[in-house]
Simulated scan of single mutants.
Amino acid sequence: MTTASPRSPLLLLTATVILTVVGVVLLIRPDQSGTGQAAGPTAHLPSGRSVPSSSSASPATRSTPETTTTADAPAPAPSPSASASASVSALPPHGGGLAGDRAIQQALDAAWPADLDGTDERQLLTLGRALLRADATGLGRDRWPAYFAASPQGVAPAFATARFRIQAAIARQDGARDRAVVHLVWAGTDRGGTHTDGRITDLHFVRATPTNKKGSPTWVPQPRP
Rank of each mutant, 00 (worst) to 15 (best):
R122N: 11
Q123R: 01
L125R: 02
L125T: 05
L125V: 04
L127N: 03
L127S: 01
G128C: 02
A130V: 10
L131R: 11
L131G: 12
L132W: 02
A134T: 00
A134R: 00
D135H: 01
D135M: 02
A136T: 07
A136V: 06
G138D: 00
G138T: 00
G138K: 04
G138R: 01
L139N: 09
L139Y: 06
D142A: 14
D142W: 15
R143L: 07
W144Y: 10
W144E: 09
P145R: 01
A146Q: 13
A149G: 12
A149W: 11
S151Q: 13
P152K: 03
P152L: 00
P152E: 03
Q153G: 08
G154A: 12
G154Y: 10
V155T: 08
A156N: 12
A156R: 11
P157R: 07
P157V: 07
A158E: 11
A158Y: 14
F159Y: 06
A160S: 15
A160D: 14
A160E: 14
A160K: 14
R163N: 13
R165S: 11
I166C: 10
Q167T: 10
Q167D: 09
A168K: 02
A169E: 14
A169F: 14
Q173E: 10
Q173I: 11
D174S: 07
D174A: 04
G175M: 02
G175W: 02
G175C: 01
A176S: 02
R177F: 07
R179G: 11
R179Y: 12
R179H: 12
A180S: 14
V181L: 15
V181F: 15
V181E: 11
V182T: 04
H183W: 13
L184I: 10
L184G: 08
L184P: 10
W186F: 03
A187C: 06
G188T: 13
T189Y: 05
T189E: 02
D190L: 12
D190F: 13
R191K: 09
R191I: 05
G192S: 06
G192F: 06
G192L: 07
G193Q: 13
H195D: 07
H195S: 09
D197K: 04
T201I: 01
T201M: 00
D202A: 15
L203G: 05
